[in-house]
Design a binder for these strands. Structure first.
Length: 423
DNA sequence: TCTGGGGTCCTAGGACCC
DNA sequence: TCTGGGGTCCTAGGACCC
């Protein structure tokens, strides 16, 4: 049975989430911003038409926003995460062979359904997802994941397609690839794009028919797989249960730069708290902690970046223990006299908590720590996150490092106090 | 004034060992 | 005139993704 994939992709996902709970936004230019309301990271089609580019800093488009009445929202990850779950649950109704690829995308294996009209099936997926969740999606169908990506792009662009495009049955396969710019192919970023164009390869069709050796030499095994996928030879199969995470990072920019070690310690303690909670949710412990800090790379002032790696004698997910290690590392890399713009922690060498290697000289009561952490997590799940937190993150009044979201919508679906109200 | 955050995979080169 | 070879492991950096 030859493989057939569908890629289901939510249209302008964050903006679409906002629209579900605020129907007045339909047909208007809308954007959703990154942390600290910094950059535009999701744009409605109307906003795209105004020329608002992905990732553009919002201060650069102030006038455009004002002149066109662009609706601007801070990001609301609680809302988007919850809406994503609903979309994925809906898609899972169609087939158990589903790979959740990102917050707004999933691959479906349709190999066993080829006796049906797949375009028709795609429309059913679209209809049901819209009806059950309010989120519009596009569906691309093809013999490989890379081709399904291309099909999905065409489904979004073409008016005639109506949001669904089946490349397996299309008589215009070569035309479709020819229409796709090489930089829009999945796996071709700025560096490869430049190289390919230098060699006269401008679209997906030319890439498909390119010389294997040329591609192999500059793009390695990844490039070889890429052109095979374009030829319809499947190199990436469906991953139903993705492997456990290899690392967890928590980092934030500060709206205003900060200078003192004290403030950095608070911020880092807060990031460790978030990361350790993620760690415990995954039932993992970390063996290597890294802490880093940096100045503002967009400024011309004196730059500084430093990172400290700490190997833990016993892997752990205990917040207080990890805060201690992180603070110890931070002290080593902190230099007085710089304006710090960002800091973060990374947990690496993750292993399942059931496989902790004991250390002969360990002095910590591990059982007590596990009980304490699970009590902490339970309270925060029941009463809302950060109901209980470590004093090391400081008092609310003077947290200059705290991320701001000035134009955030309500957590309509995840917070009892902010549920959607029918007027 | 104001510029996000979190991942994966691959490769080259060095250290080390036999 | 002349300085082995091959394997493994680790790390840093590059490239890409959403």
């Amino acid at each position: 049975m030859p493989p057939v994939f569908a890629l289901v992709d939510c249209n302008n996902f964050y903006v679409s989430c906002e629209r579900v709970f605020n129907p007045k936004l339909a047909g208007k230019p809308v954007i959703v911003l990154s942390n600290n309301d910094g950059c535009a990271i999701s744009r409605s089609n109307e906003a795209k038409s105004l020329g608002i580019k992905m990732g553009v800093p919002v201060f650069q488009i102030r006038d455009l926003i004002k002149a066109n009445g662009v609706q601007v929202y801070s990001s609301n990850y609680a809302l988007y995460g919850d809406m994503s779950q609903r979309v994925m649950q809906t898609l899972a109704e169609f087939t158990p062979d589903i790979e959740i690829y990102s917050i707004d995308e999933a691959f479906l294996d349709l190999s066993s359904l080829t006796q049906y009209d797949l375009t028709d099936y795609g429309h059913q997926i679209r209809y049901k997802t819209r009806k059950w969740t309010g989120i519009p999606v596009s569906v691309g169908i093809a013999k490989t994941k890379t081709l399904a990506k291309i099909a999905n792009n065409l489904a979004k662009k073409s008016k005639k397609a109506g949001g669904v495009f089946d490349l397996t049955s299309s008589p215009y396969q070569d035309k479709s690839l020819e229409k796709t710019k090489v930089e829009d192919v999945w796996g071709v970023g700025p560096a490869y794009s430049r190289f390919l164009k230098e060699n006269g390869i401008r679209n997906a069709l030319q890439l498909r028919d390119a010389d294997d050796n040329l591609i192999k030499k500059r793009m390695g095994i990844v490039g070889t797989r890429l052109i095979h996928e374009l030829r319809g030879v499947c190199c990436y199969c469906l991953d139903r249960c993705p492997p456990p995470k290899k690392g967890i990072t928590v980092s934030r920019s500060f709206k205003q730069s900060i200078e003192t070690l004290n403030e950095l310690e608070e911020a880092v303690a807060a990031y460790v708290s978030v990361g350790a909670e993620k760690l415990r949710k995954e039932h993992s412990v970390s063996g290597v902690l890294m802490v880093f800090l940096m100045t503002n790379r967009f400024k011309r002032e004196r730059q500084y970046f430093n990172l400290k790696t700490i190997r833990l004698s016993v892997s752990t997910s205990d917040t207080s223990e990890l805060i201690q290690y992180a603070h110890q590392g931070l002290k080593e890399i902190y230099r007085k006299g710089y304006l710090y713009k960002k800091a973060g922690v990374m947990f690496n060498d993750l292993v399942p908590e059931s496989q902790i290697q004991a250390n002969l000289f360990d002095v910590k009561d591990r059982n007590r720590s596990v009980k304490l952490m699970s009590a902490l997590d339970n309270i925060n799940i029941k009463m809302g996150s950060s109901t209980l937190k470590y004093a090391a993150v400081g008092l609310r009044q003077n947290q200059r490092w705290r991320t701001v979201f000035e134009r955030r919508s309500q957590s309509y679906t995840t917070n009892w106090d902010q549920l959607f109200e029918v007027p």
